[in-house]
Design a protein around this nucleic acid. Sequence first.
DNA 1: TCTTAAATATGATTTTTATCATAAAATATC
DNA 2: GATATTTTATGATAAAAATCATATTTAAGA
Lengths: 143, 143
Amino acid sequence: MFSNTAKYAIKACLFLAVNSSEVNKLVIKDIAEPINVPSAYIAKILQALSKKDIISSTRGPKGGFYLTKNQFQTNVMQIIEAVDGEERLNSCLLSLEKCNSDNPCSLHHLVYEEKHKINERLKRTTLEDLRQHIMRGESILPL
Amino acid sequence: MFSNTAKYAIKACLFLAVNSSEVNKLVIKDIAEPINVPSAYIAKILQALSKKDIISSTRGPKGGFYLTKNQFQTNVMQIIEAVDGEERLNSCLLSLEKCNSDNPCSLHHLVYEEKHKINERLKRTTLEDLRQHIMRGESILPL
DNA sequence: TCTTAAATATGATTTTTATCATAAAATATC
DNA sequence: GATATTTTATGATAAAAATCATATTTAAGA
């Protein structure tokens, strides 16, 4: 459904949302280990996210990764799109370009509605929402 | 969501369901071209499907691929599992082994219900169902 | 029984994705 | 300003998925 990269990106952002702030930056190693992702790999992903302004970073001593106030409002879909590209999620199940509601492919009606709902929810859910969910103990921070 | 292989497998089975029968077998080329999949690749997929008894085949002149009566009752999920393996569809969005309803990961509630519905529908929908849908003009055979 | 037309088995190649490694640039602190 | 610590840029390697190629086996029909 999502690439490994996208999953890792979500994990990392969520970890930042829960554990970091502008005055408490996290260094790569302190992110990679707890979320259980190879650090050289997550480094690359964090770089990409930072470039797309999904997360923030500063170099040098006392530097690291963190989220700004605004960035807590990033939704999950934006994270996925930032690393996987737009189409991946929106493409037809059977990879037909011609497939749409007017000209549905054979599996269209089997999944369309639910797929749409999932996408909408991913768009509507922000890092802040997920953070609160975790804080309330309603879900676990992934490891 | 699914691998290319799974998509191709579905396309091919559906094409067989609509166009073949025990007395009208289809040769690889006659499947590959209309469904727009490289013929050496679909050949390999058809072999795998045949081995798992999702489709039938006979070699030699007048040979080819086709579905038996029983095989029209194969559901879409079975096709996907035959080529992708069981777990792919059931794995957690964030790839956590520990994630389940009792111990939900952070994205669990965002997608679980819909994902479950999709899976159920894929299990409940047979090739015969899809064939009829196409015959009634309610969806298109994918190219 | 020979020839031909088909699937099957096997494995090679290419492309994509995932992962690892490291030199360069930036910044805080002394 | 020198040093140490961090991200950034870049590219190399490994693994997996997709694709291509071909020799072997099977079965029909002449």
